[in-house]
Design a protein around this nucleic acid. Structure first.
Lengths: 231, 231
DNA sequence: AATCGTATTATGGCCTACCAAATACTGTAG
DNA sequence: CTACAGTATTTGGTAGGCCATAATACGATT
């Protein structure tokens, strides 16, 4: 196993991603950052033209995004960007709470100083990003914080699930982060998670992580229900 | 919303599934029930011939299964049936524990007699299937039990996640179920879940659900580590 | 005989072109 | 103004072909 790890460290980052992967990233990007709005139709041939690739590739990309939940396929009408459903968002936050709570508990129970150090580093980066009002960086560093939480205890599958779900609520996340008091409360709640982990309090770490997600969920819900009637 | 629900209840099960969906189910089936073994190469053109469909469809199916985790894609070598990793299996069981525990707790907290009734019905079906030694039915009814747990409290997203993860360990499940004492202990643990839900004990329901998954996980691990050295 | 190139094959990645069926649109006749 | 017929749009699916790469087999050379 350590041999495999060593190999992985050496291995050259394959620069030759397939066209399909590039196209996938582009379209996902476009959906997540709002270039394609929820409900927009994704016409195959238009996408072919915009991406400069063939239908074969576009179709595979659309299938992939469909299974990610970013694209919905109306029968006999074709794919559209998935609508954001307030109830679905709530469920996603709930699942994140359960899984991130689990990860936090495991971190606490392991009681390794390196975990605490890594998390504190992430948190510092988040605070810096808030200070600079660089919201894209806040988002990235928050992801990194949670990634640390999962990967330090080798829960790659759970991290994958969380990641998968998170892209579906990405624009919500970017809105909750911009909320007034979030820049102070968010890091505060995260530091509570770290504190609990540091003192090996699994129960407390789990609760703190769930609280943090619950707070984000509450803000998201407020944002969403304030926005829906407007449309 | 209630209108949509009524429609959904009425709507005829669209018999005109696309060829793609049919092919997807066939290949998934073939992987899950062992017709394709882990590590087997899935050669596009061969699959075309076997399924009687074009490469376009086959490729889309392979992409989809890849994002489900049933198929792995080796660069420059093509798709193979994903290998079952013991650590990954453990993680999947752990996630199921977290989510099914959450669902059980929610069921208990809702305190609706219909939930208890529905779960008891499922459990009875499982017991019958065990009595008849119909293991396929045991598996189906067990899924149905958990589906009830999730859908009665409208957690469709979480159910989707569990389902997605479960196909990856399906053959493990079918082995754990055949284990000697499982036919008695499994239903016993499930009835404990129901008992806790009936008396509105959220904490207890969650713990009972997690215990049940943990037991399955332990058996799976034993089965798997007894099997691996043989190969 | 061992080794070093070189054809051949197998296969995935990608493309173009085509057809059928369903849907949406549009213009005209009554 | 309505009903209907025709037309365009778009997906679902097929066929086949081109190219690049990896592996294998096959010689040729030393």
């Amino acid at each position: 196993m350590s041999g495999a790890l060593k190999d992985a460290a050496i291995r050259v980052e394959r620069p030759a991603k397939t066209l399909r992967e590039l196209a996938l990233d582009k379209v996902r990007e476009a959906i997540v950052n709002g270039y394609f709005r929820p409900g927009d139709r994704l016409v195959e041939r238009d996408l072919c033209a915009q991406l400069g690739v063939s239908r074969t590739v576009v179709r595979e990309v659309l299938r992939h995004l469909e299974s990610e939940g970013l694209v919905a396929n109306l029968p006999n009408k074709g794919p559209i960007v998935a609508q954001l459903d307030i109830d679905e968002a709530r469920q996603i936050y709930e699942i994140r709470g359960a899984l991130e709570g689990m990860a936090a508990r495991l971190c606490a129970e392991r009681g390794s100083p390196e975990i605490v150090a890594a998390l504190e580093e992430s948190l510092a980066a988040i605070r810096n990003s808030y200070r600079d009002h660089d919201m894209a960086a806040v988002l990235a560093n928050t992801s990194s914080f949670y990634q640390t939480l999962f990967t330090m205890v080798d829960r790659h599958v759970a991290w994958g699930v969380v990641n998968l779900l998170t892209v579906r609520i990405n624009h919500l996340r970017s809105m909750t982060i911009k909320t007034e008091r979030r820049g102070i409360e968010g890091p505060l709640q995260m530091s509570k998670i770290i504190d609990a982990i540091r003192r090996g309090d699994g129960e407390g770490a789990q609760r703190a992580a769930m609280d943090h997600v619950a707070a984000a969920s509450a803000i998201a819900e407020a944002v969403l229900s304030a926005q829906k009637p407007a449309e």
